[in-house]
Computed example of a mutant assay.
Amino acid sequence: MTDAEREPEKPAPADADQRSASEILGDAVGSAARRAGIDPESEASTGHVVWRVIGGWRGIAESVLPLLAFIVTYTATSNLVLALSISVGAAAVFTVIRLLGRSTPIAALSGLFAAVIAAGLPLFTGNAADQFVVGFITNIAYGSAFLLSVLVRWPLIGVVVGFLKNEGVTWRTDRRKMRVFSALTIVWALLFLARLGAQLPFYFAGDVATLGTVKIVMGIPLFAAVLALTFFAVTRLYARASESDGSAEA
């Protein structure tokens, strides 16, 4: 009788084919980031990565034109319904373009959904400046989340990069990585809070034209700058870590 016949095969652990919650979350975060064009493992330049993430010229147009249409129309006519209709209409055009380009329905409809939500409040209140309230809430939420993550020593940039680099949360034991990720997370928090601080005075003054202009200026340009800083810093951080490991082995 062979050993295989004498010893019955041991059953696999019940959870052997089950993945942990952190692994599932890591895959979700990593997949979303890579679909957006962020991949620290790639050899792409910082500029190329930033351009992919913002969506190129189409992404810029989708971000700027609906809001610009609202500002110009309302400033020229003072007709709130017309301005909002043109803004939402512009978002709808980009949605159709995305659908024709075989984007996923969620990705295609997200911009239109955001435009409709933003238009709902000013239609209800009659105050054109309320078109920007949803943006204020978004900035408060993101800014607070980034700051809080640093305070509890789970900087969000580290969480995202850790999953993208397939190291989970082991980066938390590396002081240099913790410092870099915490600093970058604070920079992102300041971006959102700076937008809020710069726009609120014009909101309370009812200056729709200036408020919209400030939002456009502090939108993609600042986002692209902070994203470029983040990608460059993370790339350099891991390059130095690899050099240190190589020196230690030598």
Results as ranks from 00 to 15, higher is better:
15 D>P: 02
12 A>N: 05
44 A>Y: 00
9 E>F: 11
27 D>K: 09
35 R>V: 10
32 A>T: 11
41 E>Y: 10
18 Q>M: 12
17 D>F: 12
29 V>C: 06
37 G>I: 05
37 G>H: 09
13 P>Y: 04
48 H>M: 14
39 D>P: 02
38 I>K: 06
48 H>D: 15
28 A>M: 13
34 R>M: 06
21 A>M: 12
50 V>A: 14
14 A>W: 04
9 E>N: 11
40 P>M: 07
50 V>E: 09
29 V>R: 04
44 A>P: 00
25 L>H: 02
36 A>W: 10
43 E>S: 15
42 S>V: 09
18 Q>I: 14
7 E>M: 14
18 Q>K: 14
29 V>T: 03
9 E>L: 14
21 A>P: 01
29 V>F: 01
6 R>L: 11
25 L>I: 05
22 S>H: 07
19 R>M: 12
52 R>H: 12
34 R>W: 00
50 V>D: 07
16 A>G: 03
7 E>G: 05
9 E>D: 12
33 A>D: 05
26 G>K: 07
29 V>Y: 01
31 S>R: 10
7 E>H: 15
26 G>T: 04
11 P>F: 04
34 R>N: 07
9 E>V: 15
20 S>G: 14
14 A>C: 00
24 I>L: 15
8 P>H: 08
50 V>G: 00
50 V>N: 09
45 S>F: 01
50 V>C: 08
7 E>F: 15
22 S>N: 10
